[in-house]
Nucleic acid binder design. Structure first.
Lengths: 192, 192, 192, 192
DNA sequence: GATGAATGAGCATTCATTCAT
DNA sequence: CATGAATGAATGCTCATTCAT
């Protein structure tokens, strides 16, 4: 019953570990096979090269992202509930699968222009869906007449901020921070 | 009158160009000297290695950042004015000196933990100053009782979002987007 | 039957050849791999760098030296027999494994002070043993009361002289030269 | 009256210092001009390259060597007196002008075969003269019938030994060592 | 399937040498 | 006379990739 990890899985894990520790470019295939404890030939049996292993990891992340969004964010939710769910889901996905998520941050900036677009494509539909939620809310009168993309932008931006502050300064975010942030997005900071 | 550019300046410019185009790791010293049109020895006359050239560029950015914040964000400003100034300044610095700014995004993620902290240090005091602005505004009653760090977080987050959307999807932000975003931060999206 | 030489052995041989021909510093890794007829990566698979290949050769020499001294110089021998054996062994080791021996002469002078001491350490016990032979001979009355270290010094010095004369002027030493030299050390040049 | 050192002299001194400290190959022209505190162009004003500076130093040594031998070793001397003078002169030249002398040891081994011969040529006549002294002493009956070259060989060998022991192990030789060594060469170690 | 020896293109770095000022 | 900026050939070293076992 106990499933021994296959060499392929060991390689994927080792790659993820190392990309997060040392960055993609600085990680060598020798590093990966050393940590996965297998031979060089084995790496090339399963992956064409380092990029192809990276792609697998990215796909894995995208799948997880989609699952979580589908599970947690529904158009039937109320405004505060939905906004909180969106921010929380983003943060949870990047946190629960933290290294996979951070990997995206670490890597995707340095890709070629075309590759940059391609890497965000699988996620775009879900962001569009969120935009549509707020667009609908405007129509229904629950939300003021602002560009709904900017709401999604603030949610994504807050995610960036919390994760990078955690990553760079070791300052994790608290539930209160999330609540605060949602509250600002909904009601603003100004005393009415 | 106009002073011909020195080799050192040519190298810095070439480095900046290439780091932005191909990323730091993928840029070779041969690339840099080819674009700066000078010999390999000349590179090593002025810089110890690629990292040292990068550091110079980062310092340059930090200096520009400080200048712009000092010039544009003052504690005497009103709430909307200040928030707009903060977001605008962030965006202008990263835009006007766009490539220098993007460079930070592209590179700093893959540094060692200690280097990550070090790279953000020169900017921290200015972020603290912003936080203090909002803390004061809470005391004075102009702002509701939320954690002022989260306001700064949303401003930074929005900056991230606008810039990365521009960089990745070639979708630039408009003055209306800025206005919208400030408005959301101040008054929230919810119709009162 | 005869085992084909491994790449590692080919590299060691090529290194020895070239160090002797052109000196250590003037020999490049490209030279070595060209002569060993293998790729650059192969060199670095087996050795960290040129110094590490050199160390291997030095160890090889030290091992040979120890073997020869153990085989040829015994405390039970008579004075002339022992002195002849010592000089002959020195010369044979440096001659039979001529290039390895000469390698020591060529290289070790330019090392850092600490490295100089370290490089002579593996040989020291054997020189001490020789000194002790003559010290014992003084006690037993066979040898006059001189500092036994100076006898060993003359044997080593004669070895230096014969080898360097051979190396520099292409003038090899003869059995008669050895006999002569031992005779001088034992009985002096002065007609009694 | 106080003669300020010329740039040329400063360069020669710096070269000598550095060749002794780090070896010829490891010393760069940048090292030399840094220690001589002058510009790169100045080096090339006075010397064609590093080899040419070395040659000057070697010539300087050879001149000193000739002066000392002429001053101290005369054919009219008695056997012990002459032998002592020869060994002492060798040692003094290499000691008094220690770094120049050691420089020869350090460097000359690694030269090309032809250069090796050339570098010893200026000294050969003086070694021949010593050989002739002992040859004459054989004819006159003061010395037994051995090959006189081997006597010179032992004197040179002893010099090598004393100097290298000093250089490598920091064990200097004493007047007693010289006396001992001359005594062995003249009368042998064996109790008659 | 799994391995790791062998490879060489590619990159960083050094340093002797030139030459305009 | 003196300088030092500029140069690029030479060299050390890395690492992705291949392939015979």
């Amino acid at each position: 019953m106990s499933k021994r990890k296959t060499k392929r899985e060991l390689l994927l894990e080792a790659g993820l570990d190392l990309f997060c520790e040392k960055g993609f470019e600085k990680t060598t295939i020798d590093d990966i096979i050393a940590r996965a404890d297998c031979g060089k030939g084995t790496f090339y049996r399963y992956f064409d090269n380092k990029d192809s292993l990276y792609s697998e990891l990215e796909n894995e992340f995208n799948t997880l992202f989609r699952q979580e969004v589908n599970k947690n964010c529904h158009s039937g939710m109320g405004l505060r509930q939905y906004t909180t769910a969106a921010l929380t889901t983003f943060l949870r996905v990047f946190r629960q699968y933290q290294r996979l998520g951070m990997l995206r941050f670490i890597r995707e900036q340095s890709l070629e222009p075309d590759a940059r677009k391609a890497s965000i494509n699988p996620i775009m539909p879900y962001l569009m869906e969120m935009r549509d939620y707020f667009a609908t809310a405007i129509t229904s009168g629950a939300v003021r007449n602002i560009n709904p993309e900017n709401v999604v932008g603030l949610i994504i931006g807050a995610t960036h901020f919390f994760l990078l502050r955690d990553f760079k300064l070791n300052l994790p975010y608290s539930p209160k921070d999330i609540e605060d942030t949602v509250d600002i997005i909904l009601n603003g900071v100004a005393r009415p």
